[in-house]
Structures are given as C-alpha cells and as structure tokens.
Design a protein around this nucleic acid. Structure first.
Lengths: 198, 198
DNA sequence: CGGTTCCTTGAGGATGATCAACGAGGGTGG
DNA sequence: CCACCCTCGTTGATCATCCTCAAGGAACCG
C-alpha cells in the first residue's frame, strides 16, 4: 500500500529516523499509527515459544506495513524492526482512517491491497502448509519474483540469506541449504559463488 | 462478510440451489460473481499435486465466500463445493462493485472483513509453520472457537471429522488422532464418545 | 589480517507419514 | 428388529525425512 507523501504530510505525518535493528512496534502492542517507508527496509516477524523466528514479511521503500490491525482496532500480530537505517512516515490512526474516508481513490487501492494479500496468503498456504521443503522454498522464490516486476528473461538474484529463507518457510538452515543444492543440480535455481538466483 | 439480502435482491441477485457435493466454482476459474449463503454450508479447498486436499475455509449461513478475487480481478485460488443442499445468492461482479461504491457502510464493513482475514492468517501462519502437530491443531481449534461467539464457560463441540482437521492443518489423519489422544490426556481437549470438545 | 556473519557437510536421532488392519457408529432396506 | 454397508475412528509396525548437534570453511568488512 502506498499513499502520496504530500497527502500524508498535509494530514500531519511526521518523518522519523530508525537505526538498524531498532524496533518500530512490538507484537501484541495496540496499533496506533500508519507507517510508510521513505528510506530503508523493514522486517515483520514473530518469535515462537522455542525462540524461533518466523518472518511474516519484508517491506521496502514506498510501502506501508502493519495496516490491518489499524482497521480492525487490534494488536500487532508481529514485531517490526528496521533492517538498516530507515526513514519512516508516521501518521496517527485517526487521521489515517479519515484519509480513507475522504479519498475514494485511496480507499479503493487500499481495498485492492488487502484483497491481494488475502489472495496471496491463500496461494502461499497451499504450498506451505503441507509439503516438502522444495515446495515451500519454490513458493517463497516464486512469491519474491512476482513482487519484483522484472522481465522474466534472466534469473533473478535473491537477496536473502539461507537463514532468511529458513525463517520465511519454517525450515531449518541446513535443510534449506541441502534442498537448494539439490534444486541447483536439477537446474531449478542457480548458485554462483554462494549467491542464489531464481 | 454479509450484505443485507434486500439490497442484494434490489441489485439483481438470484437465489440458486446447489445439491450436496455440487461444485460452485473451480480453482483457476475467473471470478465473476459475489456469492452469499442463504442456506447450507460451503467448503473451499485446493487439491495439491499428490491429490491431497487442503481446506482453505468453510462457510455457513449468512456468510459470503470467494470475494477477494472479485476485487483484484483474478482467478479463484481454490474450489468451492456444497457440503449439503444449499441456497446461495449470486450477484454479478459489476453489480457487487457498484454496491461497494454506493454504500459507504458496506464498503467499510467489507474493508474490515478483509483486514480481519489478513490478520487471522498472520496469526494462523505463525502456528501452522511450526512443525509440531499440537500447535497446528490448537491453532485450528482456537480459530474455530473464536468464530463461534459462545460463552467460554463450557467446552465446545467441534463438528469436524478427524479427516477435516487433517485437511485443515496439513497433517495426516493418524497423526491428528494420536495428537488429540495425547491432548486429551493432558486435558487440553475432551473426547467423549469419539466426539471432540475444546 | 582478525573478527563476523554466512554457508556447508556429516552423523545420528526424533517424529510424522505410510501401510495395513480392525473397530465403532449410524443409517437403510429387507 | 436385524443385517448390511459405509463412513469414521483407532492402533501398531515400519519407513523416510527433516531436525539437531557439531565442526569447519568461505566471504566480507573494518
């Protein structure tokens, strides 16, 4: 989701800097602000009982995050931290809801965005829920590729560590490595100099 | 999601009967109608490569289903079939989108509904991704319980077969049975006469 | 260089899936 | 009312595979 920054500022948004690794909001905290990235990258994740991390999503410049709880007036289902030095626009929940009321365009594109997310999660679930590691990883890669609107001519560099992929898919690092090695043999991915291409 | 039936009829909705096991729409089909249940139950599921079934959701009287693809103008991610004899209101996509434009109230509640679904899937994912069957099953039970707004005084009968639970959680029937047996010992669920309570 | 962080490999163990039977309950028709 | 069938639940044995633990190597950066 993206809202024109002029509009955000008009309604009183503030740009705030976050250091690398700084927490933007925490799991179970009440949702009070609309956040939109001007600079940097943000990761949303939850830690489970065994201290293991599950990545809900990563967001980059121009994209908002943590909006659903604003709409349903609830807590954040995950923690958001800055992956590097970030500049993030913050707007109060009330103002954000007002914007949705005032601008039909924004309301529509927000609706579109939410519907898309439900849709994508349905697709992802299908592969993630059951299935062998290769399906989970492929689903992750496919999803990443779709988000970058590249020409599908060439293979795309995946800028994620093996650990990241493990945390996205709920697998262990070693399993990811071994599965990727096999996929490389089968020419489903390419691994050049330890870098992963899909 | 629920839209007042008077409004639906005013805009040209048609009530249609479906026999038990009849397919309402299929995976990968273009979304063309808004569907709202007047009578009966509907299951949405996808079949994976090995012919195994994964249940995306079950819906009952008063609830709509398959709406996100309408908004984003795409295909259905799953197949919908009637679990019993159903009466379902059908409204064309165009009319449905017009209703969203015309009625602010409905637009807002639809937005709420979508946000809630994203939120719930985030929560569910956190548990589902976790390997252990007990977490997956607990997540399913918790979710079911939340959907019924019962007083949390007593244990709730879960009207699903073991196979259903397996298809919801991506586990195998035998695993579900064994895990439930253990949970029963630990008093996390009750099993009386083969019936499951949570 | 020296320290991090990330990647890789191997061996062993835990656990969910698979396969094969059988049991239990509910409904139907004779 | 009983016999039958069909679906659902249950159990045990075996297998496959992912996780765990441990160790070491490669790349990157100050």
């Amino acid at each position: 989701m993206y809202i024109d920054t002029d509009i955000l500022f008009t309604w009183g948004a503030i740009a705030k800097r976050y250091q690398k690794d700084e927490i933007i909001f925490s799991e179970n905290e009440n949702a009070k602000f609309y956040y939109q990235i001007t600079e940097g990258n943000v990761k949303m994740f939850c830690a489970n009982d065994e201290g293991r991390e599950f990545i809900q999503g990563e967001f980059c410049i121009g994209s908002s995050f943590g909006d659903p709880p604003l709409i349903i007036n609830s807590q954040y289902p995950a923690t958001a931290i800055a992956l590097n030095n970030c500049v993030i626009l913050k707007l109060s929940k009330e103002k954000f809801l007002t914007i949705l009321d005032e601008y039909t365009e924004i309301n529509n594109s927000f609706m579109f965005d939410l519907a898309l997310r439900v849709y994508k999660k349905s697709i992802t679930n299908k592969y993630i829920i059951n299935q062998k590691p290769i399906y989970r990883i492929t689903s992750f890669l496919e999803n990443y590729k779709k988000e970058q609107n590249t020409s599908h001519q060439e293979r795309l560099l995946i800028p994620h560590t093996r650990q990241d992929i493990a945390d996205f898919t709920g697998l262990r690092v070693e399993t990811v490595i071994r599965t990727l090695a096999q996929m490389s043999k089968d020419d489903l991915v390419a691994i050049i100099n330890h870098k992963l291409y899909y």
